[in-house]
Design a binder for these strands. Sequence first.
DNA 1: TTTATAAAAATGTGATCACGTTTTGATTGA
DNA 2: TCAATCAAAACGTGATCACATTTTTATAAA
Lengths: 231, 231
Amino acid sequence: MKRLKLELPDLDKPDNMTTQEHAYRRLHHALITGSIAPGVPVTIRGLAEIMHTSPTPVREALRRLSSKNALTVLENRRVVVPQMTSSRFHELVSLRSMLELFAVERALPHISDALIEELKLIDDAMDIAVIERDSKGLTILNQKFHTKMLSANPEQITMPMIESIWLQLGPFMHSAIAHVETFYTIDRHKQILIALHNRDLASLKQALAADIHDAVGRFDDQAMQKILHPK
Amino acid sequence: MKRLKLELPDLDKPDNMTTQEHAYRRLHHALITGSIAPGVPVTIRGLAEIMHTSPTPVREALRRLSSKNALTVLENRRVVVPQMTSSRFHELVSLRSMLELFAVERALPHISDALIEELKLIDDAMDIAVIERDSKGLTILNQKFHTKMLSANPEQITMPMIESIWLQLGPFMHSAIAHVETFYTIDRHKQILIALHNRDLASLKQALAADIHDAVGRFDDQAMQKILHPK
DNA sequence: TTTATAAAAATGTGATCACGTTTTGATTGA
DNA sequence: TCAATCAAAACGTGATCACATTTTTATAAA
């Protein structure tokens, strides 16, 4: 079997968690933190060897991820991390904006003061991650922040779609971070927290839009070309 | 093994199509046409027996569908068709409107006259389906119409999400059709076709929004309660 | 050095089996 | 008639194997 050069995070696996679910989460984590670059092939047997399982649970995890468009099934049935293009990137970002703004409007009525406190804790952890230049930790915390806020709405249709977008953007961020000097931007989460506290929808949407734009807005066409086709 | 009372469509299976893909499509078709009611349990072995395959490809098809939120995995790991609620329904419909309006705006620049002709053919077939009161055929054709129009945009991020919504709305329509007198509405597709021909974005979005609303707008809270909790 | 060819390795897929858990249905007792 | 009990049936999960196809590697020819 061909050895895959691929690093997977060691996540906890409670006894009642299926092997398939565990495999899914490890791959999910690796994808959203940009630990797997676009174009990298992921084989069932290769992953099974890394995770010390049989191919069966890996196969199911890969099916779930390709079903969410986080992975692409090629004509020959092999699975790869999809390549990013400039137009795909902009489509993903536009969609992310729209979906998160839609979701936050429906989440706001369900935001409690206790929830805001929890969000503050995540934001504090993010400040530390910035100081430690822990970009992967920061990514995870940032998504935790957004997820917790948007999930206040008990009706969860939008959240899985937003997660699908994150999954698709993740691998590109891998290559992007290497080409960008300032990965860390001004903290829009503080503005979001204030808007949440004031139950001010307009400010909230503005801050959220800015947060999303900050994370990806710097990638104009010129920067994209450099990242996608480095000399 | 317990016999599932469940009708699956007989779809073509080309030689190069995997059994798993075939199983997926048959279930997909059954779900979007409302052939499987909410709450119905779907077991791996039961489906495998119906489809004359081993459990393996069915398992993968179910994973894909639950990954798209078309099916729900319960705590005991069993899979069921999710139950509809009034709030979930309205969330789904709002999201569908937003996503399709987003998608059509990005599709319009890529619409060719040839494509419009193809859409007209689908619309003609829909007219026949209405006359024959073939509600399932009408559903399939309607989705074909929307899919072909929105897929004009070569960058396909939104379409899988819209399909996910259709998958979630499908099973409810099963119960809904039985409680509704006039399933067939005025044909908004004619207006859509005109707007497409004129490359008139504003009219196009208006017609599309009306089309979506017509299909589901009649389900106010009162009607929902009747459908969800029939005496 | 490059190209063509054949053998070997790798891969996805589907079937089958064993295991532990959950559900079901009949039987017993109140 | 209803509730409790318990054995049987059903179920999801993960491992293993066989098979066909694709990819890679080694070898030979130009």
